[in-house]
Design a protein around this nucleic acid. Structure first.
Lengths: 79, 79
DNA sequence: CTGTGACTTTTAGTCCGTG
DNA sequence: ACACGGACTAAAAGTCACA
């Protein structure tokens, strides 16, 4: 069986979507942090799956990335 | 302008989806809490939008509701 | 520009009880 | 079976110095 039969880890989903969208917008962690009102190192922690982020902060990230919250928990098509 | 032009509040989305899915499965707050390993009052707080839930707990809720995490942040079609 | 551990302040989440 | 409050404990938020 493949890994996909199990629910993807939510931290990993958030981390990869955050990083991907951030890079697509051309922002550094530092700049994104400033836009969202976070400290630079906190964004780093989220991308490295260290932080157990709260729903309010997830929403703030979604806002600066200009995507709905659900988009941060959607796995990218591998193709 | 309507409220829908802005990103839906993530707490509200989670709250309504949680309650709807819980009732569909025929669980009380108390029983769902037990299944997910939470305290009974905590599930109540989530459904009333009082709690600022963490991503790990969101994932646990999704697991017992047998839906992907993204489903908890998807608005129901008004139909 | 980013990773990381240590750190203080704030809050998440529990437990007890009431209506 | 659920809402709600107060007090409490575990953990997240938020920051810093350094690699």
């Amino acid at each position: 069986m493949t890994k996909s039969s199990k629910t993807e880890d939510a931290r990993a989903l958030l981390a990869s979507n955050l990083q991907r969208l951030r890079l697509e917008l051309g922002h550094s962690q530092e700049h994104l942090a400033e836009l969202a009102g976070f400290h630079r190192t906190y964004v780093s922690q989220v991308e490295r799956r260290v932080a157990n982020v709260t729903i309010d902060n997830i929403q703030r990230l979604a806002a600066v990335l200009e995507v709905p919250v659900a988009a941060l928990f959607t796995a990218e098509k591998s193709g």
